[in-house]
């Protein structure tokens, strides 16, 4: 495990996240301390329920941290308000999910354009940017297709383009190949790797050793705790 450094893009110190369901209080993340440098390609590897998705959600501003410190870029998420977290999700990070989470009523271009529109761009500008990104991820021939008309791999590529539309510093991927067959998964991983080589910091959460093997650094998690860095 790497100690936090001032040069790091992600700096987490004693980070804990707990949540409660109706009857259970769960410590999903326990005193995690780590950092990610700009341009790194990091995989967080662990079995189901190990807390890796919770960590990713905390990094993505999708879940407030319970204790500890979390700084991404110049933004301290430890004490962020709801609106601060929304701004963080909008501008600082792009998130890719296993289930894609595209809006079913919108076509590929509009799905990609939505975050840009939320950020204040006009639809015209946002669509132009979305079209460029879809071309980048090899989806130029599917611009007007809706999610149900796309294959799983195509949907994931649209989701990747959407995650990039506001030029985030950090790209988070939560089991990005979990719903894809082997060949399609390899294509998606190639794409993510290419984006990383172009300068985008990439953090992938996975339980798949093969996916983790493509990362420059692997952080393992068990029962909410980060294990010493094996890399």
């Amino acid at each position: 495990m790497r100690a936090t450094t001032d040069a790091a893009l992600v700096r987490a110190s004693e980070l804990s996240v707990t949540y409660s369901t109706k009857s259970v209080r769960v410590e999903a993340l326990r005193a995690a301390t780590f950092s990610v440098l700009p341009g790194e390609r990091v995989a967080i590897l662990g079995p189901s329920g190990s807390g890796k998705s919770t960590l990713l959600h905390a990094l993505g501003g999708l879940r407030a941290v319970s204790s500890g410190h979390l700084v991404i870029g110049d933004h301290d998420l430890s004490s962020a308000t709801e609106n601060d977290l929304a701004d963080h999700r909008l501008h600082q990070v792009g998130t890719i999910f296993q289930q894609f989470y595209l809006l079913g009523r919108l076509n590929a271009v509009d799905n990609v354009a939505v975050p840009a529109v939320i950020a204040g761009s006009s639809w015209r500008t946002a669509r132009a940017r979305a079209t460029e990104l879809l071309d980048t991820v090899g989806m130029a021939h599917r611009l007007k297709h809706r999610p149900h008309e796309l294959s799983g791999g195509e949907q994931q590529r649209v989701a990747i383009a959407r995650a990039l539309v506001n030029a985030p510093q950090l790209l988070l991927a939560d089991e990005p190949t979990g719903s894809l067959d082997t060949d399609t998964a390899a294509t998606v991983l190639d794409l993510l790797e290419e984006l990383n080589t172009q300068g985008t910091t990439l953090l992938i959460v996975t339980h798949d050793e093969r996916v983790a093997a493509r990362a420059a650094r692997v952080v393992r998690m068990v029962e909410g705790r980060l294990l010493p860095d094996a890399a």
């Binding site: 949540y19 919770t54 879940r63 289930q99």
Partner: peptide, 15 residues
């Protein structure tokens, strides 16, 4: 409640 809590639960249920 918190929209984030609801969202996080939804995402966790799907993951």
């Amino acid at each position: 409640r918190s929209a984030l809590d609801r969202l996080a639960l939804m995402l966790m249920e799907d993951s």
